[in-house]
Computed example of a mutant assay.
Amino acid sequence: MRVEDAAEPDMIAAEAAAGAFLKALGVETDSDHLRDTPGRMARAWAEMLTPRPFDLTTFPNDERYDELVLARDIPFRSICEHHLLPFTGHACVGYLPGERVLGLSKLARVVEHFACRPQTQERLTKQTADWLQDRLGARAVGVVIRAEHSCMTLRGAQATGSSTVTSTLLGHLRTDPRSRQEFLSLAGF
């Protein structure tokens, strides 16, 4: 299954808007150092908000593997939808296979897919888990995300070094205390 999501950005309009935004904030872009900044700014935002397409590769679970499959420390970056400031962190994504198993790199690709849009960490966690559950037919899915939000560390509370942890546990990881504990232990939380 091919996963594609985003429309092509209008880079000409984005660059003009970036220039207007900087000017509205009193930042003149006439100097050699700032002349190309609106274009660089537009390209940077387009890159941060555009997920790469990927194929959701699954394979038959011929071995009938029935233990946790878990990928830890998946790095990601996203944009806080309330302030449009970046937040970065690591995700742990795991599942108990059913009839099919997933290509391991796809766990990171799914996180990236949902992180490349204005987002809340809570929604990112739930969307990743729900999407995998719906498409994989797993007996359980778990997602734990730890992130640092620059909207909290660089402004407002200025709580430098603080992080936020969210989790979504579905299926046996939610209902079976032993499975839940195993997942959280392996996830490192």
Rank of each mutant, 00 (worst) to 15 (best):
F76I: 01
P75Y: 11
H149D: 08
H82W: 04
D176L: 02
E63I: 12
F54R: 07
L154H: 13
G98I: 04
P86A: 14
T175F: 12
L107R: 11
T166R: 09
R123K: 15
S167Q: 10
C80W: 10
L34A: 06
E99A: 15
A17W: 14
G94I: 11
R178E: 12
R178N: 06
R35F: 06
A20R: 14
R139E: 10
I74S: 00
G142S: 10
D66P: 03
R64E: 13
A17V: 13
T160R: 15
F189K: 07
T57C: 02
T50C: 12
V165R: 13
Y95A: 03
G19A: 15
Q119T: 10
P177N: 04
A14I: 15
W131K: 04
I79F: 03
D66M: 07
C151S: 09
T175G: 02
M152L: 14
A129Q: 07
T88R: 11
G26K: 12
H113G: 02
M11N: 03
P97L: 00
D10E: 05
T29F: 11
P75G: 04
R35A: 11
D176T: 11
L170Q: 09
L170I: 15
T37I: 13
L186C: 06
I74E: 02
A115C: 03
S150N: 04
W131V: 05
R109G: 04
C116H: 15
L70C: 10
H172V: 15
L132D: 00
R40G: 02
P53N: 03
R135L: 09
L70S: 08
